[in-house]
Design a protein around this nucleic acid. Structure first.
Lengths: 315, 315
DNA sequence: GTGAAAGCGCTAACAC
DNA sequence: GTGTTAGCGCTTTCAC
C-alpha cells in the first residue's frame, strides 16, 4: 500500500540507503554482489524512485510544459502527440495547457506551468505581446516559441515564415487566373493573421476583395459563406478548419469546391488530405523535434521553417 | 534568478517561515497586520509556492494522469481538452500519455504516470486485460476507466453501453431496408469492437455480409473500400475517422455517400458534423465531468452512459 | 566500495 | 498570534 522508499530497499537488502541510490542511478562504486542483492530487493518491493523528492533535491523536474491555442484543433493535437512521443523517449513528462487563443489565458497558462514546476515550456504564443515569455525565461525556465517570430525576444524559437507561405498561395491563385478572392482570417492583432494576409497580397499582387476577421473555428467561416450573396472565385483561409467550414457551406449552396470556387487552407492537418484540401504545410514533425531539442538546450536559437504549398482538388 | 522560497519571504517580512506558510495557504491565526506585510513581501519577491516540495510533504501531487489511445484522434483530443478545462478550474495539472492502441504501451504509460507521481489516472483502456489497472489502484492511485466496462474490476468507471449504441445503428439500417452491410471494425480482442459488432447484429437481426478488422485509422478503411470489387448498401464503421476514409473512397469511386451507399460512424467528433456523417454520440462532456469527479473521489462507482444515434446525410 | 550527515522547500504538530 | 522542530524521499559531500 505505502509506496516503498530507498530506506525500505536498503533495509531489505541489508545495505545503506546511499548504496541503493547508487544502484538506482546506475552510478559506479558498488560491488556486483551488493548490486545484485539490491536489485532483488527493488524487484520484490516494486520500488520506484520518487520523482518529486529527486526533483526537490536536484532542482530539475523532468517536466516540460506545452502551451497551445486549442488542443481540439488537430494541428495542435498532432503537435502535442509528437512532443509526447519525444518526451516518452527521453523520460520526461509533458503538461499541456490550452489558451483558447486568449492572451490572458496564455499568461495564466504560463503561471500554472511555472507553479507546477516545469523545466521548460514550448509555447505557440498568441504573439502580440511577449514580455511575459521573457519574464519566465528570466526565472530560469527555458522558453521555446513555436511558430511565432519575435526577433527581439531573448528565447529560442522554431518559427514559421508565414509571409512566404501565404505568398505562395497568392502566386498560385494569380497564376490560375483568379480575380475575386476573399480572405478568411483570424484575429488581426496576431502575427499569424497579419503575416498571412501580407504574404498573400505580396504574392497575389493586389489586395483581395474582402478580408474577414472571424473567430477561429469552422462554424464562423461556414456561417459567413452561407450568408454571402455572391461567391468569390477563391477563398484563402486562416487554417484548415475554417477552410472545411467554407467547403461545407459551398456544398450546401450547390457550388463545387475546386471547380466553381477554389478553397485554400493552412496547416495540412490530417483531414485536409481526407478532404482533398489544397493547403499550406510546414514540416511539423521536424519543427517539433527542433523545438524539443531547444527546450532541453541552454542556447538561444531562432530557427526558421518555410512552408510548402500542397496542391489538392480544392484549388 | 533563483526562485524565492518561504524563507526569503519570511526574512523580507521579518517574520517566521511558518507564518508565511499560513498566509500562503489562507489559514487562520495571522494578524491582519503581519498578513499585510507578508503579502507585500510575496508580491515584491514574486514568490510562488514550490509544488513539489509541498507534494513531498503532503503526499498528494495535484497531478492527474490521462491515458488515451491516440491523442491525434479528435475524440481523445476533445476529451483531453475537457479534462484540462476542469483541471484548470480545480488547480490540478494534467499529464497525458498515448498508447497507440497497444496494451504494452498502456502498461508503460501507467508506469510512467506512477513514476511521475499522479494522484489519479483517467484511462481509456484497451480493455482486454485490466489486472494492471487494479495493481496501480492498490498502490494508492485512483483509477477511473473511461469507456470500457470491467464488472470485476475494483475501480471506478464511466462506461459506454456499446452494445446498445450499435444496436440502434443495426435497427436503423434494418428499418431503412438495407440488406448488404459491411462492418469496418478495429481489434477484435477489444471490447469496443466486439461490443459494437454484437450490438449491431442484435439490432440488425442478422450477421452482416462482411466484418473487417482493420488498424484504426482512416487510411486502412479507405484502402479497403478502394479495393472492393462490389460495394455493399451500407457501412458501419468503428469510428468517425474510419467512416471518413470510407466516404473518401466512395467519392473517388463515383458513389454518393448517403444516396448510393449509407455510411455510419461512431463518436461524433467535430468533423462528423462538418462532413454530415451519421454517427453514434455519447454525451462526452458529461462523461468527462463524471470521470473527473470520480478521479478526485474515494468511492468506487460504475456509471453507465448510453449513446444516441445522430442522423445526418450520410445515412 | 560503502555509509553518515546535511539539506532541497515545504507543512503537521506542538510549544509559547 | 507566532515560532520551533521534525521529517517527507532523495542526492551531494565527505569521511572511512
Amino acid at each position: 500500500m505505502k509506496r516503498p522508499t530507498l530506506k525500505d530497499v536498503a533495509q531489505k537488502a541489508g545495505t545503506s540507503l546511499m548504496t541503493v541510490s547508487r544502484v538506482v542511478n546506475n552510478r559506479p562504486g558498488v560491488s556486483d554482489e551488493t548490486k545484485a542483492k539490491i536489485m532483488k530487493a527493488i524487484e520484490e518491493l516494486g520500488y520506484r524512485p520518487h520523482s518529486d523528492a529527486r526533483s526537490l533535491r536536484v532542482g530539475k523536474t523532468g517536466r516540460i510544459g506545452v502551451v497551445v491555442s486549442d488542443i481540439r484543433n488537430p494541428f495542435y493535437a498532432e503537435m502535442v502527440g509528437d512532443i509526447e512521443d519525444l518526451a516518452e523517449k527521453t523520460g520526461m513528462t509533458v503538461i499541456v495547457t490550452d489558451t483558447e487563443r486568449k492572451l490572458q489565458q496564455e499568461q495564466r497558462a504560463l503561471e500554472t506551468l511555472y507553479n507546477s514546476g516545469v523545466d521548460s515550456i514550448i509555447i505557440a504564443p498568441e504573439g502580440y505581446s511577449v514580455e511575459h515569455l521573457e519574464s519566465y525565461k528570466k526565472k530560469g525556465i527555458n522558453i521555446v516559441s513555436f511558430g511565432v517570430h519575435c526577433p527581439e525576444g531573448n528565447f529560442s524559437e522554431v518559427w514559421i515564415d508565414e509571409i512566404e507561405g501565404a505568398r505562395k498561395v497568392g502566386k498560385y491563385l494569380l497564376k490560375r487566373g483568379v480575380k475575386r478572392v476573399v480572405l478568411i482570417m483570424g484575429n488581426p492583432r496576431k502575427f499569424t493573421t497579419s503575416g498571412r494576409t501580407e504574404g498573400f497580397i505580396q504574392g497575389f499582387g493586389k489586395v483581395p476583395d474582402y478580408i474577414l476577421h472571424l473567430p477561429v473555428n469552422w462554424q464562423s467561416s461556414y456561417n459567413a459563406v452561407i450568408e454571402m450573396k455572391k461567391l468569390p472565385e477563391a477563398f484563402f483561409c486562416y487554417n484548415d478548419l475554417m477552410a472545411l467550414g467554407v467547403i461545407k457551406a459551398l456544398r450546401e449552396k450547390g457550388a463545387v469546391p475546386g471547380k466553381d470556387v477554389a478553397v485554400v487552407g493552412y496547416d495540412d492537418v490530417f483531414f485536409a488530405e481526407i478532404s482533398a484540401l489544397t493547403t499550406v504545410r510546414i514540416d511539423k514533425s521536424k519543427m517539433v523535434n527542433t523545438a524539443f531539442t531547444l527546450a532541453l538546450s541552454d542556447n538561444v536559437e531562432k530557427i526558421k521553417f518555410v512552408p510548402k504549398l500542397i496542391l489538392r482538388k480544392s484549388a
